[in-house]
Structures are given as C-alpha cells and as structure tokens.
Write a protein that binds this DNA or RNA. Structure first.
Length: 409
RNA sequence: GAGGGCGUAGCUCAGCUGGUAGAGCACAAGGUUGUGGCCCUUGUGGUCGCGGGUUCAAGUCCCGUCGCCCUCCCCA
C-alpha cells in the first residue's frame, strides 16, 4: 500500500517551526492590541465574485492562482487568496460602518494560491494582516506602517521599507493613460508579458525585471507628475510623519503592487535574505474598495505579512519554560509519581512524568533527551536533581519540594 | 506557464568503469546492585521512489512515470 502524502504545496508545521509560527503570531497579536485593533475571524471560502471585484479580474491571483470549486448547491466558491477582500466584505455585510466612524480589524490565518511552490512560497500559506476603515488622514498611513515595523523589530527581523504613492483614482487614471501611450510607442522593445500588461495592468510594467524593460521604463513618465496637489500633500505628510517616528524608508516610484484596489500609499517591507520572495509584508491604501463592493464610501488601508517568510528570517525564539521530569524509581512508586507530577502541574511547572519501562538509566537518558532542567526521583522520599550541575537534594515531603522549586524557577 | 537539480536505513549521505548494499548520527540493550550528558560494546533497521527494458547479473545502463527541491513569472 502506498503511503498517503501531503498535497503538493501544503505543509505540516511542527516542532521548531510550530514554535516560530506561534511566536510570530503572538507578537503580532500583542502589537495589534497595543494599537487597539480588534480581531476578526473570517471564513476561508468566499463567493468567487468577491475576489474578481476586489483583487481584480486581470491579476494573476484571480486569473490563475485561485482554488475554485463548485459546491453541492452549485455555488462558485473560492478559497481565499488574501485577506483584505474578505475583511472588506465583512465590514460591509456586518454594517460595521454603522457602529462607529472608524473600525480597526486584524486577522490571521491560511490563504490559498495555486502556484509552483518554492522557498517561502506555498499553496497554503499564512498571513497576519490588519485593516483600518474610516480614516482618510495620512496619520493612519504612518501609523499602520509603524505598526508593521514594530512587529518586525520585535521579531528582530530586519527589512527595508519601500514606499510610493499611486495617487487617487483620478490621478491614477490620467497617469495610466500617459503611461500606456508611452509604452505603446515602445511596444516592440518590451518583453512579451509586458506587451500584454500594457492592456491588462500597465503599472506592472514598471516593476518588470527584464533588463530591456527596465531600461525603457527608466524614461517612463513618473506618477509624481500626475498627482493632484492634494495627493502630493498627503504623500509629503506621510513621509513627514514617518521621519518624526524615526522610520527609515526608501521612495520607490516603481513600486506598484499587484492588486487592483490600491490608491495613494503603497508600501513593502523587503529582505534580500530569502531570494526572490523577499517581500515579507506589504500593504497600502484602498479608498474606493468599500464603495466598489457595495458599502458606503469609506477610506481604508491595510497590510498583510507572510508568516512563513517571517519564519525563514526568524532567528530568535523565546526560551521554553524549564522542564521538570518526574521519575518513579520503581513501579511501586507510580502512584506517588503521578501525584507528584500532578501537583507540580497544579503549581504551573512544565512537567513530564516518565512512564516507560526499563532501567533507571534508560529513564535518565530519556529525561536528558527531553531537556530536563530538574529531575525528581520519587521513592519513599523525593530527590531533586539539578541537571546542569548534577547536584541532588532530598525532601521528605512534596510540599517542601515544591516550595524549593518555586524559589529556584 | 518556462527552466535546472535530486530521489539508497528515521536523518545526512557514500556506493568507481554493472556482480543482489555501507558510514555517521538517531534508536534499543549493556559497560555490576537506584541516576543523564563523554567514551566503549552489541543490536534493531533498506520493496535502493515506482513500472518496464537490456543483461547470466542493475542501486549502478536505457525508457517511462510519480514525488520533492530550486529558479523565472507573480506574490505574502
């Protein structure tokens, strides 16, 4: 019988990796709470039209990366490829705009994209993300970016911040028009995909990695020249706030992001340490999306970070709580052993009771293997052995043993 | 969607020009009577990814197939 294996692009996260995952998640949560965000737990499936209307019909995500299926009721369902669309949908559907003028939400969980897996890329991957609804002020942009930076800093993961602005919808429209014209004229020198992009997603050409395309787009018109005074001012303010917060950033006028819904600010935190998948967290503003999906006009912005990519970069993990291993010397001391383990746990010590058969030596080997800080030998007395020094002390009753451990640990 | 690498013990791998498998680590037991980490001894463990072909004989050659990893595209 052949072994059952996990599906391509999916992974079991266990052991050290599970610790990293949990740690990243915990750090992010604490920081979200500091910034007064509330959690939203979203469904993993949505009506497929949600992503077509938000992420964009022409994007790679929608065109070739979505897990789509028809359920038994004949509905067209998609496993969510990202979190913003669902959050916006929930914001509208649950009428959160009626609760207060602003709403700050965070989420965590699996996303699904059908791509060729490689380092830092999986078909099921996990993101933490946050969205702010109802604030147009550039303060929100600066605060969101600072929040992401707080997370990265706490995790001690260095990444450079790149920012850009795409202007509002009008700015963007006229810029795209000019850009299209520029690209049309140089069509024959652009790569194949960029030729398609001219129609589907002209901004993306700016981000192309092909050398000849890069050379051409060096000359391309810049968004900056198409920004309204207001958009420009917004952008300047954000930079001012970031500077005040001591946040270092690089302006990258080519940074456009792949999703359709962005307006004004876009940003990415990038590292060079994990190859091509260097973007570790990214986000931006999407002031028209809520309206587009049927809600009231609501300015909004958000970001998402890839947990797996953060895991690749995470070097430090907080130390585990010290482990106490309880060894009943012989079978006659099993009851005393389990009671000892029980009261140690009651006192919040991380405790392992050795239950295997065999020589005391083999049990000690196991205790050592498990990483015991202390071993308690249970017989007609209690012997506490410090595993780093090898010293041992004797106690007549459990209470004394526990009192001493409370002081030590 | 395009390209490259790899599949031999639980893990990391060795196995030259074909002669039916090996190391290190890990695991188990032991090195005296109730005590780990180092060292020593012994032991468990392999359909050599799968299927077919060539051959007296294939882990080793040929074909196919599956799987994994990586790069590009794109994205977190």
């Amino acid at each position: 019988m052949s072994k059952v294996k996990k599906v391509r692009g999916f992974q079991d996260i266990y052991g050290e990796n599970a610790k990293k995952y949990r740690y990243i998640s915990d750090v992010a949560r604490k920081i979200f709470e500091n910034y007064n965000f509330e959690e939203i737990i979203l469904p993993y499936v949505e009506d497929i039209s949600l992503f077509k209307r938000s992420v964009g019909e022409a994007t790679d995500i929608v065109q070739k990366e979505m897990y789509v299926f028809t359920d038994r009721g004949g509905r067209e369902i998609a496993l969510r490829p990202e979190g913003t669309a669902s959050t916006v949908r929930a914001y509208i559907e649950e009428k959160m705009y009626a609760q207060s003028s602003i709403k700050k939400l965070f989420y965590e969980g699996a996303m699904f994209r059908y791509e060729r897996p490689q380092a830092g890329r999986y078909r099921q991957f996990h993101q933490i993300g946050a969205e702010i609804f109802g604030i147009y002020s550039p303060l929100a942009d600066a605060e969101l970016i600072k929040m992401v930076l707080d997370i990265l800093n706490t995790l001690e993961i260095p990444a450079r911040l790149e920012i850009n602005t795409l202007g509002d919808f009008e700015d963007r429209k006229s810029y795209i028009k000019a850009l299209k014209e520029f690209l049309e004229e140089r069509k024959q020198h652009l790569c194949e995909t960029c030729n398609i992009r001219i129609e589907t997603n002209p901004l993306r050409v700016l981000d192309c990695k092909v050398e000849t395309c890069k050379d051409i787009t060096k000359e391309a018109p810049l968004i900056t020249n198409f920004l309204s005074d207001e958009s420009l001012e917004r952008y300047e303010k954000i930079k001012e706030y970031l500077k005040a917060l001591n946040v270092e950033f690089i302006e990258n006028p080519r940074l456009v992001r792949g999703l359709d819904y962005y307006t004004h600010t876009v940003f990415e935190f990038i590292t060079d340490k994990i190859g091509a998948q260097g973007t570790v967290a990214a986000g931006g503003r999407y002031d028209k999306l809520v309206e587009q999906l049927g809600g009231p006009p609501t300015p909004a912005l958000g970001f998402a970070a890839g947990i797996e990519r953060l895991m690749l970069l995470l070097e430090k993990l907080p130390e585990d709580k010290p482990l106490i291993v309880v060894i009943p010397i012989t079978e006659e001391h099993n009851i005393e052993g389990i009671l000892t383990a029980d009261s140690l746990r009651f006192n919040k010590f991380r405790t392992e009771l050795i239950m295997k058969e065999g020589s005391l030596k083999s049990k000690m080997k196991l205790a050592n293997k498990l990483g015991a800080s202390y071993v308690v030998f249970v017989s007609d007395k209690y012997e506490l052995k410090d595993m780093t020094t090898g010293t041992q002390e004797v106690f007549e009753n459990r209470e004394d043993l526990i009192e001493v451990l409370k002081i030590r640990l």
